[in-house]
């Protein structure tokens, strides 16, 4: 039988995949993809806890996470387009121009 632990472990694995992506990616668009992976992993954990404790709070939090992810993507992609217009690249190493 599938228990809460199964879902939490899958969620932790997906979150770690997103974490590896955030750590190793140098391209901003790919960094956004990795962030989406992490947000989705957290949503799985919320839904699983909501199901196994018979509580709706987890689902509510998942809704707000989705809303925040949507607005993050809207603003982030706007900034990405502006950056691409100005620098012609989305690589973090090219964008780092504040060397101390």
């Amino acid at each position: 039988m599938i228990g809460l632990t199964h879902y939490l472990v899958v969620s932790a694995l997906i979150f770690s995949i997103g974490l590896v992506g955030v750590l190793r990616r140098r391209n901003l668009l790919m960094l956004f993809f990795a962030t989406e992976v992490m947000l989705n992993a957290v949503n799985i954990a919320f839904a699983a806890i909501s199901h196994y404790y018979n509580d709706l709070t987890g689902q509510m939090f998942a809704f707000f996470v989705i809303a925040i992810a949507a607005s993050e993507v809207a603003v982030g992609l706007g900034i990405l387009i502006v950056l691409y217009k100005r620098y012609g690249s989305l690589d973090l190493d090219d964008l780092a121009n504040m060397r101390g």
Binding site: A48, S50, I66, A67, V73
Partner: peptide, 23 residues
């Protein structure tokens, strides 16, 4: 699909519409 297994039907539909559709 995970959400549908977990009985969170509305969350699954929102995931499909907002994430897969809009984002």
């Amino acid at each position: 699909g995970f959400f549908f297994i977990l009985g969170a039907d509305f969350l699954g539909v929102v995931q499909l519409i907002v994430y897969v559709g809009a984002v």
